[in-house]
Design a protein around this nucleic acid. Structure first.
Lengths: 357, 357
DNA sequence: CTGAAAGCGCTAACAG
DNA sequence: CTGTTAGCGCTTTCAG
């Protein structure tokens, strides 16, 4: 076994670097200095061995590795980030963890980012702009290398902070003419228009909407209503719900309202989510209504169950995983200072016709 | 698009602290020193003003606040964490973001942690132990104040690192006699046993299971099978599926298998998730089978749709939000060095009888 | 109530 | 290939 070199580093000439007045708790942390001393090299060499092993001689490297193993050394990325001004952290804000729409998006995003050495700091805004603002501030204090935001509407203060931070900001799930930095999403209004055109083409003369309390859902609804009326001259019955999360149960209740209280029948219902749509389908089945003849249903999201409901759900598909990956791609381009082809990336959507409409 | 740059730092009196040989990029960051200079105080005073305003005179405080506003100063938490050895970061690892089971758990957890000033670094392990190991290492390098893990089985190396880190570790969703530090969850085996007892008491003489490829799901199944056989002397038909995620579609396919290929009828099916269960219900409806007379179904999870399926789903409820909150509570106790009542917290579960069984 | 000094553990020049 | 030096921006003593 190699003899440890007994450089000065190893000897205890009164080491001024450790002379602090009152030591902080947890003083026993293993640092690069410890490892270096053990391997008979300086701290810097340990740093090099870790960041670029080819810059260190094989023997030195081996000794350093050995020292790392025996000490269980884990580098302090906080210190590294402070010194290098690169944290390899990404701040991500989503309205909700539990909404599959955002979590699948996040899944695609984080997977790519992880593969590229980044970690995600995640928080929920709960659709609350003030909270978003304060979360942005907190997250920026960690000096992330980039920020992922959901939606394109943010408080002026938040925008200012983000711009001031000088780091890439990617807004997802929505597109805007004036992104903070860049955005990747699709036009919610376009989905509503297309659904309306589809409904009319399919021959539905009556229409209703069931919408959650969400700005984007409302944009889809408004576009649907406008286009349907434009095309048919017929009013659309709109029903809004404001639950925490859209559930199948709300969808069932919506159909009850529609049928029992609004006298709606023989028409198509455009829902703001597949959950609602599935609820309508369920209630229709419970009542023995024929779908799509008496009640036709269009969902939104093409969630994993949509193809297998009974009858199968006609819905709007957005590939959320791919959207997340595209967002990651945009952010990585920004990191490399590559010119983005366009600061707004429209990933589009697809109306999937199945059996429910 | 144009990225705005920050304002140039305040005034350039020859500042020795900035005399580095080659300046790093982004040198214009606003620091406490900048703010202090602007407010006519030292950097330390700015630090105090932020961490404990009562330690600073009102006038000074006002000037500092003003300076912070005009500069748009955002403290550097990286530096703060390095100096104070407290990062206010929590590392959290879950198998998957998109599985509602984990995301709802996380929701409860992160909400409490956020209220207490902590932020979450989140990663997906994808049920992969090696990946978990490497993620733990990466996360530990950020010096989190605590770690949240899903499940109680971790590689020996991972355990070692975690223990070596000396920070609180909370394992959730499962309980173990030998947690790394502490765990909060429930006994999966107990849910299986209870479901079997329920099934027998309800008079079902035949039983089958539909199980996802997941260690905990298997534990529930095994307990169900054992107990059912113990009680009735009848074999249980077990069907395993190994999809990425359990979907309604898989559940439909499972019922097809069960009925068409295994000749299963007039019995109860214990599913490893409500998704599967909902699929069985859907397929039963599509085939005109009577539920629960011909096919009875027990789910797992009591997800938001469970009470509103048609017929309503009998299932095992675990309050995942509360579980996450309890986990946060345990971690906070650890931070405060309070003695935990017990290092293993069993939050229990509840069998909810509705209409499907 | 305020400031000076001394690090936290690491990376970035620069010089052998 | 390796070491030295000088910070990164903050918190923590200790001393007014």
């Amino acid at each position: 076994m190699t003899r440890l070199r007994r450089d000065k580093a190893f000897m205890d000439e009164p080491d001024k670097t450790r002379k602090r007045r009152g030591p902080l708790p947890g003083g026993g942390a293993v640092t690069m200095t410890t490892v270096g001393r053990m391997a008979g090299v300086s701290q810097v060499t340990v740093s090099r061995a870790l960041s670029d092993p080819s810059k260190v001689s094989p023997e030195t490297l081996a000794r350093i590795r050995e020292a790392i193993r025996t000490t269980g050394f884990v580098p302090n990325a906080l210190a590294g980030a402070l010194a290098s001004r690169k944290s390899n952290l990404i701040a991500a804000l989503v309205p909700s963890f539990t909404n599959i729409v955002y979590s699948s998006l996040l899944h695609g995003f984080s997977e790519i980012m992880r593969q590229n050495g980044y970690q995600i700091m995640l928080s929920e805004t709960g659709h609350d702009s003030e909270r978003e603002h304060s979360l942005i501030e907190t997250h920026l204090s960690r000096r992330p290398d980039g920020v992922l935001l959901t939606g394109v509407h943010h408080s002026p203060g938040a925008r200012r902070m983000l711009i001031g931070s000088g780091i890439p900001v990617v807004e997802v799930w929505d597109i805007s003419e004036t992104p903070i930095d860049c955005c990747v999403g699709f036009s919610h209004a376009a989905t509503g228009r297309e659904a309306a055109e589809f409904a009319v083409a399919a021959g539905y003369g009556r229409a209703a909407t069931v919408t959650a309390n969400d700005a984007r859902a409302r944009r889809r609804r408004d576009a649907f209503v406008r286009r349907f009326q434009e095309l048919t001259g017929t009013e659309v019955l709109t029903m809004d719900y404001a639950p925490g999360t859209a559930t199948l149960g709300h969808g069932r209740a919506a159909l009850c309202d529609l049928v029992d209280h609004q006298g709606f029948m023989n028409g198509v219902v455009f829902c703001s989510s597949d959950q609602y749509a599935h609820g309508l389908l369920t209630e229709a089945a419970a009542r023995g209504l024929a779908v799509p003849r008496q009640i036709a249903v269009i969902g939104f999201g093409d969630q994993d169950f949509a193809a297998n409901t009974y009858p199968a759900l006609t819905t709007v598909r957005v590939d959320r995983g791919a959207l997340g990956e595209a967002a990651a791609g945009a952010m990585l381009s920004r990191f490399r200072d590559e010119p983005l082809p366009d600061s707004v990336i429209d990933v589009g959507f697809q109306l999937i016709r199945r059996e429910s409409a």
